[in-house]
Structure formats: C-alpha cells, structure tokens
Design a protein around this nucleic acid. Structure first.
Lengths: 267, 267
DNA sequence: ACGTATTTGTTCGTATGTATC
DNA sequence: GGATACATACGAACAAATACG
C-alpha cells in the first residue's frame, strides 16, 4: 500500500488523503506496528537510528520525533552508547495514567491522597479474591519485616511500601497496581514524614496485620474497608503534618528499579 | 533515561532551568503541565516553535521532538502556516493507542477494562456525596442527550462518554477523574464497537438513568454498585466482541525488514 | 587500564510548502 | 499577486555516554 511508497519518498501517485500525514506520524505508526505485531519483542534492541531512518527513507530528525514519542509513551527506552530497547507492555499501558498525575502539585495533595486510598482499596479487595498462596506469603513477609524493624527501632518506610506493593501485585491487575505504585512514589516524601512518629508506625502495623488477615480469609468486603480506613487515616495524618509546616519537598521521584544501575551522576 | 523518573514529582516547581534528563523529555513535561494546569486551554494557540524554544533555552529540533510527541498523542494539533493549538482533553491518547491495541492481547484489555470499572465506581460514589446541583444537571443532560440520540437513531458514543465524564467531574477529584478519562480514551475504540448494537445502547441508557438517580439521591453505596455492575457488563460485552472477531481495522504495513547488523546483545 | 568505535543527544543552517492578510 | 509567518523536512556536525577490543 502507499504508506510504504510514501515513506520511501516516492510521491509518484497523487497522495491519497488518508496517507497524507507527516513523516514522523507515519514512522510512528510503522514503528508501533513492529512492536504490536511481535517483530520486536520486549527487551530486544531495535535497529539504530541511522539504520532505521535509512530503512524508512526519512531524515534522522524526522525519525527521532517518532522515536521520542514512543519513548515518552513508555514503549521504548533509549540509552546513549547502547541503543534503543523495547519496554515491557505493562510499562506503556499504565504510563498514560501518569499524565493524569503530572498536573498535580502540592496544592492537590489531598486529591492524590484520596486517589491513592481509593485505588489501593480496590486493589485490596481484588487481592482478597485472587491472591495465590505464595503472594499471601509475600504480604505476610512485609508485615513481619515491619514488625521486626519497629522492634529494632529501624526506619520502616520501605517495608511499609513493600506491604502495599505486595497487595497490589496480588490483585493481578498491572494497570491498577502500577497506578498505585506511581501514586505512592509521588507521596513517598509525606509517607516518610508520617512514619517518623513511632506510635503511628505501630498503628500502621496493626492495620496492615488486619488487612492481611482479611485478604487471607478471602473477605473481599472487609479487606476493602480496612484498606480504605487505613489510608484515610494516613491522609488525615499527612494533612495534619503539612498544615504546620511549609512543605516544599525536593524531587524524590525515583524510578522503579531498572536492571541497570545509574552509572555516573552528573552534579 | 526514560521520562518516568522525571514526570514523577519533578514538576512541583516550574523553575526556569530545565532539569537533567533529555531536553526533549524535559520540554515535554513542561509543555504538558502548561496544559494540565490550565494555562493553555483547549482550542487556544500556543506560542510558535521559535518562541518556545527560545523560552526554554533549547534548540528547535529538541523542542520539536517534544511537540511532535504531544501531537502524536493527541494533545496538540500543529498546522503549517497557522501554528499549534491545544486539543480538547477528550482527545488525549485517543489516536495512537488505536494502533497499539488492535494487535489483540485479551489479557491486557481485560486489565484496562477492570481498572476502568474500579476507578469509575469510585468516582460514582464520590459524586453521590459531592455533586453540586449544576453538576447533577450536567449528568442528567448527558442522559437526556443519549435518550434523544437513541430515539433518532444517531450514534451515541459521545453522549455515553459525556455521561461518564460528567460523573467524574462531579466527584471533585481531578487526579482520579483524569485517570478515568485516559482509560476511556484508550478504550474508546472498543466502547464504540460495543455501542454498535442497538439493544446494548438501550440497556446502557437504563443503567445511566439508574446511576444518575442514585447520585441524585446521594446514595453512595448504590451509586458505586450500579456503576461497577454497568462497567462489568460493558467489559463482558467487549471481550465477547473481540473474541469473535480478529480486529484489524487498519492495514498494518507488511514490508520486509532487514535484520539489524550483528552486535552482541544483552540478555 | 586505555583508546577507539558506536550510538544517542543536541545544535545549527537551509530549503520548501502552506496559510493568512 | 506579493509579503509574511509558520510548520515541515533535510543534512551536517559535534558532544556525551557507552561498548568493545
């Protein structure tokens, strides 16, 4: 069909109105179809920019516009000196939800906290009906770890987050679980602040234990209610914290575990 | 590095120097926040490329990569000789994902449908407790419009989506409402397919009416339950639809592609 | 440990087609 | 028609990060 001809640069035919888009848009669609059709699988490296633009018969700048859009969408990951690699599908399925959060600033902290409570309550109920035995063990492991850390007087932020993450994964819905993960990452700083108070830690641990029990007993309704209450409480605690101080956190947006460690850090 | 790390929590302050990642990713984030935060409204023209790249202190090609990504995602529309304009938010992500999902994959579609059902059920319950009288009127307006369109035999996709959007806005949580909007856009194609059957339209209208009534009566629980049921039904209808047909509404390119040149590959 | 080649990131200059007045 | 403003597109070049021998 004429998309190929068009991309090659042959304008022999009066361009059909359907295909008369920009070169980068056409390239974008072609590149995507390579992934969707399974020619380029997750984790694989795709041809280099110079090869690709030669194959498509377009300039490198035009190709890069398409490639950059795919990277922003979370479909591929480009690394200088290495190449461009296809991301797992779950990455770009949930990435767009991130744009719903980008507009949120500290003025919308309340909305973020509420959104987190809602989504994690959903996840808890789903986990109650779907968690496998190994997944239950992981959840319980996070609870136990937090217990030990409190006893030892260690910081509990990571085990707190690990609990919620384990529940999310047990819900077997990557889109929602990733959304919750992103929200937690955005709220990490405030969650950290909240957990500074020891009595709050203990209370959170109690809640986690109750939630775990509800999930283990497959009690969908109670699991949801408990998670909702727990995170509503958390929201109240955090808003109380911030009302006193002029919170202006730095960027604690951390990327979620890439296999590749950050090599060098520019100042 | 990918844009994820960046978008999370990095946009708290629109400081002048663009932070460290790729310049185009930084520009992308900055441009998006201009739209999401309402500085650039739908339909408006944004500054020209030359002005923008001067404001951001980057070259035109770098800016174009960001701008083009936004265009490919349906956030803005660039027209030669005229300028670049902001698209209505309902356009976000409604274009490219068509391509991404026509390649089947039931499992991921199921996750998206489920995520939508969960979040919109949350929104319905929130709307039941928070909707103002004018917002109730907007919801009812969407119901009435759908009713008239069915009677007239017109397509109902827009009024269907408008109903859900109105409920989302009445929930008074932008983060969740935007999430639902994005999910609906990603699923737009299938919602459209589903609504082709007349009896399904009528049934959907009945559901919408019930949901509206529950919200109007401030019945938080019933509103949630009804919305959940409605979207669970929708999910079933859509999965039935896709199981029967091998969706390929567009012609996917099938040009022969060369293998990339030999180069050692990571696992 | 070092140097070279490869690959993406970024910039500039320039030409072209289109829309508006 | 002419003038201006704008996006589209190409090509060349250098920088920076990484991989490979």
């Amino acid at each position: 069909m004429s998309a190929a001809a068009y991309l090659i640069g042959m304008n022999l035919f009066p361009t059909s109105p359907l295909e008369r888009t920009t070169l980068s848009a056409a390239a974008f669609e072609r590149l995507i179809s390579n992934i969707v059709q399974g020619k380029w699988k997750a984790g694989e490296q795709i041809p280099t920019e110079r090869v690709l633009c030669q194959q498509l018969g377009i300039a490198r700048n035009s190709l890069r516009e398409a490639l950059k859009a795919m990277e922003l969408l979370g479909m591929v990951d480009s690394r200088v000196g290495e190449g461009t690699f296809v991301c797992p599908r779950s990455e770009f399925l949930s990435r767009p939800l991130l744009w719903a959060f980008t507009g949120a600033n500290q003025h919308e902290l309340k909305n973020l906290l509420e959104a987190r409570a809602m989504i994690e309550a959903d996840l808890a109920s789903m986990a109650a009906s779907r968690a496998t035995v190994p997944e239950l063990r992981v959840i319980k492991g996070a609870v136990s770890l937090m217990e030990r850390q409190i006893a030892a007087g260690e910081p509990v932020l990571e085990s707190d987050l690990a609990f919620h993450q384990a529940v999310g994964e047990a819900a077997h819905n990557e889109v929602l679980a990733n959304s919750a993960l992103l929200l937690r990452n955005m709220l990490k700083y405030w969650i950290h602040l909240k957990l500074m108070a020891p009595h709050i830690c203990v209370h959170a641990l109690e809640r986690h234990t109750e939630i775990y029990e509800a999930i283990r007993k497959r009690d969908v309704h109670v699991a949801r209610e408990l998670m909702q209450e727990h995170l509503d409480e958390t929201a109240v605690q955090i808003t109380q914290l911030t009302s006193g101080r002029s919170a202006s956190p730095k960027n604690h947006g951390k990327k979620t575990a890439r296999k590749r460690p950050p090599r060098s850090k520019p100042a």
